[in-house]
Amino acid sequence: MLVLLPPSETKTDGGDGRCLALDSLSFPELNPVRRKLADALAELAKDVPASLSALGLSERQHGEVKRNATLWSSPTTPAVLRYTGVLYDALGAGSFTGAVWERARHRLAVASALFGVVRADDPIPAYRLSGTSALPGFGSLRSVWRPVLEPVLGAIDDLVVDLRSGTYAALARVPGAITVRVVTQDAHGRRTTVSHHNKAHKGRFAAALATTACEPSGPEDLVAVARAEGITCEQTGDTTLDVIVGG
């Protein structure tokens, strides 16, 4: 099973790993595009105003440009520990140890505007690039990633649980992947997609899947794992699940 997480705009600084080496990342077929984007991002960082414009940042976020300037020389840390924010707080990967970490590092992957997709323990530096950015000379990242990323994700034989946001799902489709909605349900059974706290609930769901001792092979197993962790979950189609939360 592979649980495909969305990235986060916010990331931790520093790390204990050596500087970025693309050969150390999973899915090496993506390395040519990774290198082009990383080189372009580092070069763009030499022009702070142009970087702020291309990345959709404000003047107060010039520190994000500094991160890009040192992409190739700054220390790395495992991807699932690099990203921060509501989803990653709920995931709690920093507390995984022993057999739990071994399961999680094989099961979790993170979508990335810069790297396409990385596994949980792939060593990456801090950077700033979102799925909606358009680097000079590249056009949309969808046009850059889709031709190379879709074949890679489509070749994964394991069950794929796709928790990506719409922006990152647009970079590459994954046929047959299980998609998950977080919804509320009223007294009449009507369901409404949750926007507030959506990430927290997806983080809890991802944690349940990443750490379970069983090996889910289909949506029924995913529902069982979620319910065992106190998460109300229901299969709504061949490849769709609803996580149902309080209103």
Rank of each mutant, 00 (worst) to 15 (best):
R173L: 01
Y127K: 03
D158T: 13
A126I: 02
G176M: 12
L87R: 03
Y88M: 05
T12I: 01
R128D: 03
K199H: 10
S51G: 14
K11R: 14
A206C: 10
D162M: 11
F96T: 12
D162W: 06
P123H: 05
P219V: 09
E43K: 13
A200D: 14
D162G: 08
A120D: 05
R107I: 11
V194A: 15
A226Q: 00
I156E: 14
A45C: 04
R60F: 00
W145E: 13
E234T: 13
P6S: 13
I178C: 14
T211R: 10
T193I: 12
G230D: 08
D162E: 10
P28E: 12
L108R: 06
R164G: 04
L37Y: 03
V117Q: 11
A213F: 05
G98F: 08
P32M: 04
R128L: 04
G63I: 02
H62Q: 14
L20Y: 03
A206S: 06
T179M: 04
L2I: 15
G98S: 08
G94I: 12
G246A: 15
D47W: 04
A226N: 00
G246F: 07
Y127R: 01
G176S: 09
F115H: 13
F115I: 03
P136T: 08
G17F: 09
P6M: 07
A177G: 12
L171Q: 09
W101D: 02
R142H: 06
L163Y: 04
S112Q: 09
A113E: 03
L4C: 04
S95Q: 13
G137V: 01
K199Q: 10
L135N: 01
P28G: 08
G237F: 02
V33Q: 14
T167V: 15
N68M: 03
L171A: 05
F115E: 12
P125N: 09
H62S: 13
V223G: 12
L5A: 09
T84Q: 15
D16H: 12
Q61E: 15
V65L: 09
D89V: 11
D238G: 11
D13N: 12
R227T: 12
D238T: 10
H201N: 05
P219R: 07
F27L: 09
T212L: 10
S140M: 08
I244A: 10
A93L: 06
A200H: 15
L141V: 01
T212A: 07
S195P: 00
I124H: 07
G189T: 11
G17C: 09
R35V: 00
S51M: 06
M1C: 04
T240L: 13
D162L: 10
H197C: 00
R227Y: 00
A224Y: 00
P125W: 09
